[in-house]
């Protein structure tokens, strides 16, 4: 199926997107269903406005999330007019911020587990994941712990566990990860600042 960009945009506007995008291997039906629900809201009267900061580049543009007070759902996200850097404007990614919310049905919502040699993800609960991960961390750390190096110097480290990430989470989360990794004795600690 040959489509021009203009034809594509016209078509998605006219028929709601699902059919046209499916020809590109995308399925927008869940997004459309979510949008239908949004259509039932009285946006002006019930909106609560919550500010956030963009999660892409490091300019730090402000955004305002409009949240439906009845359902607690975000129904619109746009640039923050009061923000001194972006003054309401946003780039293409920022303007599409809404597609990061739960409206995007590719979002992960369950704990997923893949057993050794398994061919599929399985859904699990948090209790399973936390206790199993803790056990693996302890066993790997204890088995591979280096108390002293080849020179006999006290080093108290574990080179068998690595940590990567993330410049895509909040400061308080970064501090938690930085501290956790050190307390475990890890030295392979890195994140996107390096790349």
């Amino acid at each position: 199926m040959q489509i021009t960009r203009r034809g594509f945009l016209t078509m998605t506007g006219a028929i709601g997107g699902g059919v046209a995008l499916s020809s590109l291997g995308l399925n927008l039906n869940p997004t459309r269903a979510y949008a239908d629900e949004l259509g039932k809201m009285d946006r002006i009267k019930i909106a609560k406005q919550v500010t956030t900061i963009c999660c892409y580049c490091s300019v730090g543009c402000g955004l305002v999330c409009s949240v439906d007070k009845a359902t607690g759902k975000i129904f619109n996200i746009e640039g923050d007019a009061d923000h001194p850097i972006n003054e309401r404007s946003l780039c293409a990614k920022g303007a599409g911020f809404f597609d990061l919310t739960e409206a995007n049905k590719h979002r992960l919502t369950k704990v997923l587990y893949r057993k050794p040699y398994g061919t599929e993800w399985e859904e699990k609960d948090w209790d399973f994941a936390l206790s199993r991960i803790a056990r693996l961390v302890k066993d790997t750390r204890d088995k591979n712990f280096t108390k002293r190096n080849d020179k006999g110097e006290l080093v108290n480290r574990c080179e068998a566990i690595g940590h990567y990430g993330s410049s895509n989470v909040d400061n308080e989360e970064c501090w938690i990860m930085s501290v956790k990794s050190r307390a475990l004795g890890m030295v392979y600690i890195d994140h996107q600042a390096r790349v």
Partner: peptide
């Protein structure tokens, strides 16, 4: 070939940025 990979894998679902409170530092 997944059947040859021994790794035990966990994929934990995270909150997106607008679903949590906290601070972010820009380049400035």
């Amino acid at each position: 070939d997944p059947k040859k990979i021994k790794t035990e894998c966990f994929l934990l679902p995270a909150a997106a940025t607008m679903e949590k409170e906290g601070s972010q530092s820009n380049s400035g």
